[in-house]
């Protein structure tokens, strides 16, 4: 078993899908209804082989997601996304878990780029 689909809700499907594809490099893999009455667009990315985002029309006010993306090199990915015009709400900073930077998508979902670091290792 594995964790695969991450639903996000929006009232403007096109805007969110174009944000994911232009800024984050996702591609549309198709449409599917996972739960009755909720049809969503499935988005996949090459660098995220095991997970897919499902964009679904719905009320955004009570349906905000927080998605934590794990990266090997937070600073390089931060720089890459920033050069594509993504606005980060926090610059890379150091936390006990490692280095992280945060940004929001147009629907208000919080994305965290996290590079986990082991501080006990030599």
């Amino acid at each position: 078993m594995k964790l695969k689909y991450i639903p996000v809700f929006t009232d403007d499907m096109d805007a969110l899908i174009s944000f994911y594809s232009e800024k984050l490099g996702f591609t549309v893999a198709g449409k599917m209804a996972f739960i009755e009455g909720w049809e969503g667009t499935v988005l996949e990315a090459d660098n995220l082989p095991d997970a897919a985002i499902v964009v679904t029309a719905g009320n955004t006010t009570n349906n905000k997601a927080c998605i934590i993306l794990s990266t090997d090199d937070c600073l390089a990915d931060y720089h890459l996304y920033k050069s594509k015009g993504l606005f980060f709400c926090t610059a890379p900073r150091y936390l006990p878990a490692g280095m992280q930077a945060e940004f929001l998508d147009p629907a208000g979902n919080l994305f965290v780029l996290l590079e986990e670091r082991n501080y006990n290792e030599l």
Partner: peptide, 27 residues
């Protein structure tokens, strides 16, 4: 050790691979 170690190793890794982006290096 700690963060500086990670950052220097990442930087060296990029430079070994011939990175040209000075903005990133300066970051």
């Amino acid at each position: 050790r700690g963060d500086i170690r990670y950052n220097v190793h990442h930087l060296k890794h990029h430079l070994d691979n011939g990175i040209q982006d000075e903005m990133l290096i300066n970051e």
